[in-house]
Amino acid sequence: MTYQFDFTALLPYWRDFAEGVWLTLQLSAWSTLFGFIGGTLCAIARADGAPWLRRLVGGYVEVIRNTPLLVQIFLIYFGIAVLGIHLSANLAAVVALVVNITAYTCEIMRAGIESVHKAQIEAADCLGLSRWQTYRHVILRPAVERVYPALTSQYVLLMLASSITSQISAEELTAVTGRIQSDTFRSFETYIVTALLYLLLSFVVRGAFWAFGMLIFPRKRRLGTSL
């Protein structure tokens, strides 16, 4: 083997790597936030909505979960443009990721909602709580706590899947990597650095979710559990 590694060629591009990492985190954060809100509302609709609404949300979930994310990104980025609505690459990336992760969050949250014992819901009804108050005070908090590890794993996968948005020129880490390797011709070194950065991002995101879980779920602090 005569190949000579030369990572020094990448040093002038550290700022580009940093910008790619920052945009990856931004895409992931916004997609996680809106995906969780949308997924929770969809889960409530599937669990407690009108029959037509349950069928509509169920159809949406099946379509999204059984088509590739890349195809969804292309449909949103290029399809909306055909209708005369032009989105920037970054905005289209967020929209596509939200549409995708909402479907997965819906099924995870639906499992959490269905895990809440019926007696607790009946007790809330006896206390005269409205349906919204029952969901807010009785159902959602324990539901989220029970599926929190699954949500965390799904959102870490979302962060990694954001690399696909490089196909529509969103300047996240993978897109930056492609540009750097074409400039330096050090493909092996460039992608090694990128793999290590994604590994670091995964640990950072998991750590952030662990800290957030410890903050909002006091029982986890008492038991000393992580995710």
Rank of each mutant, 00 (worst) to 15 (best):
T184W: 10
V95C: 13
V156N: 14
Y155H: 15
A119Y: 09
T2G: 14
F203L: 12
A195W: 05
A96G: 10
A81I: 01
D183S: 13
I108H: 03
R221T: 04
V94L: 02
F78Q: 12
A195H: 04
L129P: 02
G84E: 14
V99F: 13
V94Y: 02
V63G: 04
L173P: 05
R110T: 06
L97D: 05
D125N: 03
T102V: 14
I37F: 13
Y148V: 08
L157P: 00
V71P: 01
M109S: 04
L25H: 00
H117E: 10
T190Q: 06
V61N: 06
P218Y: 14
A47S: 13
P142F: 03
E171W: 05
A161C: 04
G213I: 07
G207F: 03
F217C: 00
T105L: 04
R206G: 09
E145K: 10
D48Q: 09
E171G: 04
H137R: 12
N100W: 13
M1N: 07
Q181W: 01
Q4E: 13
G58K: 03
V156L: 13
L41A: 14
G38E: 05
I80R: 10
G213Q: 07
A103V: 05
A92S: 15
T32M: 06
I121E: 13
E189I: 08
I108G: 00
F7C: 03
Y60T: 03
L196F: 02
F217Q: 01
I37W: 09
T8I: 10
I216D: 00
L223Q: 11
N90Y: 08
Y191K: 05
Y13G: 08
D16Q: 14
Y60V: 10
A43S: 09
E19A: 11
Q72A: 01
G49V: 01
R131E: 06
H86D: 15
G84L: 11
F74P: 01
L69R: 11
Q181L: 08
I121W: 14
W52Y: 13
Y3Q: 02
W22E: 06
